[in-house]
Design a protein around this nucleic acid. Structure first.
Lengths: 105, 105
DNA sequence: ATCATATGTAATAATTATATAACATATGAT
DNA sequence: ATCATATGTTATATAATTATTACATATGAT
C-alpha cells in the first residue's frame, strides 16, 4: 500500500463494528444493497453511509447489474486484502506522518 | 485476540494519524509524556487524550519512574503487536457481531 | 392503478471525537 | 523566591460521525 493516509482510511473504515460486519459478509459473497440492508437490519441511508466509507478506503467496489426481473441491482464486493500490522509497519508509517497535518491534501 | 470489540478498539485507535505516529515512535523507544509532547509538537492535554485511546485499546502501557534529577516521569511503551488483516479474519469477526448492538456491554 | 422491490438523496438530530485554554501540584536548580 | 520541567485535570469550543426521517424515481407483477 502507498501512503499513511491509505492506512488511516483503512483503520477508520474498520473502526465501526457494522463496517467490519459488512466487510465480513461481502468476504463470503457479494451482495446488493437492499439485500445487505435486510441482512444487517439497517436502513439504506445508514448503510450507504457505511458503504461510502468502505468504498473511500478502497476496501469494496460496486457495480450495477440488471436482474432477470429487470430491476437494477447495485452489487458490492470486497476487494482482496492482506495487511500485516506490526511495530515495523507503525515505524515506517510514523516516519511519513508530519507532526502538524495541514487540512487540505 | 479475543472479541470483536478488541479489534474495533484497535482499528479505532489507529484511525487517527497522530496515534499511528505515537505508536511508531514508541515502537522504536519508550518515551515519557513531556518528551513525546515535544517530539509531536502537541499539547499535553491533547496527547493524553490520544494516549488514553491507545491505552484503552491495550496497545501501549505506562509506568512511573523517578529520574536521576528526582522528577517523576511517566513512560509509555508499545506492547507487542502482530495482526494479520485478511478476509478470513473479517468473516470470523462478522459472525460475532450482532446486527443490533446494545449500548451497555 | 396499486403494490412490492429496487435505486438514490437531502435535511436534520443526536452523539462522539478532537482540540484548546486555563487551571493545579511537585521537584531540583539558580 | 523564581524558574524550568515534570506531572495531571477540568471546562469549553469546534468539528466530524452516526443515525433517522422524509423525500424521490423506476421496474415488473397483480
Amino acid at each position: 500500500m502507498e501512503s499513511y493516509e491509505a492506512y488511516v482510511n483503512l483503520f477508520d473504515a474498520f473502526s465501526h463494528p457494522m463496517r467490519i460486519k459488512i466487510a465480513g459478509i461481502l468476504a463470503v459473497e457479494r451482495k446488493y444493497v437492499s439485500e445487505l440492508a435486510k441482512l444487517m437490519q439497517m436502513s439504506r441511508p445508514l448503510l450507504y453511509m457505511h458503504l461510502k466509507k468502505l468504498e473511500e478506503a478502497l476496501l469494496v467496489t460496486s457495480s450495477y447489474e440488471i436482474s432477470e426481473s429487470g430491476k437494477t441491482m447495485k452489487y458490492y464486493e470486497l476487494k482482496p486484502l492482506s495487511i500485516k500490522l506490526t511495530p515495523d509497519l507503525l515505524i515506517k508509517l510514523s516516519q511519513e506522518i508530519p507532526t502538524v497535518i495541514s487540512k487540505n491534501d
